[in-house]
């Protein structure tokens, strides 16, 4: 792999706090190596800003290996940037060319207010899980793990849905700011397993109700969520969610 260095212009969203109006500010960074990760490029910028007595850019990040779901960012209008099936922290600078202008913004959604600069509040996603995204089993109640054989295809499909990292890119990508892909991934993960069966009806009803309450939009099957998801969670989970919701509605007594 050939490495190269580049100079870039960065157009970054600055916002002091959630009450501030916010706006774009431009910065220049020089000698960025193509081997750096995108966040390492921002580290370089922040080091530069601190040296120049300016406030560094606040952005969320933690594991920097694409699994914790903490990093976010629209990069040139795309959640997590250009690469398919990828998180911002795993985007590397070889995706950019010398002289390019890169626009960086926080997730934009009514349910995700900006806290500072590029950081938003994603606690609505936790509250959707609190509404029913679990199996009610207390510690110590379990039977032997192999007493419940699970068809491999179902287990694999359940795992594919459970890979969701809760980053919120699906919401950010959706023109309606819908959280349907996030929610459906959890519903499908648990609905595909026999352990999830006892609560399947109440789970889907309560989680959907919570999603609506949080101010997320409706799903119009555009598919931007699936195209953007760093873990490539399938939109077929939304179909499963709709099925679960429908069957729950038919039998709902509450």
């Amino acid at each position: 792999m050939e490495h190269y260095n580049m100079n870039l212009t960065l157009k970054i969203w600055r916002q002091k706090n959630k009450n501030d109006k916010g706006g774009f500010q431009s910065f220049q960074v020089k000698n960025i190596s193509s081997e750096m990760s995108f966040l390492e490029m921002l580290d370089v910028l922040n080091e530069q800003l601190i040296n120049d007595n300016q406030d560094p850019i606040a952005f969320d990040h933690d594991c920097r290996e694409g699994i914790c779901g903490m990093c976010s960012l629209y990069i040139n209008g795309k959640p997590h940037g250009e690469w398919k099936g990828n998180t911002t922290c795993q985007l590397h600078m070889r995706a950019f060319k010398d002289g390019e202008t890169v626009t960086i913004e926080p997730w934009r959604a009514k349910a995700f207010p900006v806290i500072k600069d590029l950081i938003v509040d994603r606690s609505p996603l936790d509250r959707i899980i609190q509404a029913g995204g679990y199996i009610s089993v207390n510690t110590g109640n379990a039977v032997d793990g192999n007493s419940l054989p699970i068809n491999k295809d179902d287990a694999d499909a359940s795992f594919a849905a459970a890979m969701c990292i809760g980053c919120g890119a699906c919401v950010a990508a959706c023109k309606n700011s819908s959280a349907m892909l996030f929610l459906s991934a959890k519903v499908a993960h648990l609905a595909l397993l026999p352990q999830g069966a006892p609560e399947r009806h109440s789970r889907v009803m309560n989680m959907v109700a919570q999603m609506d309450k949080e101010g997320f939009g409706a799903c119009t099957n555009t598919g931007a969520c699936e195209a953007t998801c760093p873990k490539e969670i399938s939109i077929s989970n939304i179909a499963r969610l709709n099925l679960e919701y429908l069957s729950a509605s038919i039998v709902a007594e509450k």
Partner: peptide
């Protein structure tokens, strides 16, 4: 051993063989 049982009960999708076992 209890940990595995507990996690399976919670719906942790561990890898499985074709026979459905862990």
């Amino acid at each position: 051993a209890n940990i595995i049982d507990q996690c399976v009960a919670q719906g942790v999708p561990f890898a499985r063989e074709y026979g459905g076992l862990l």
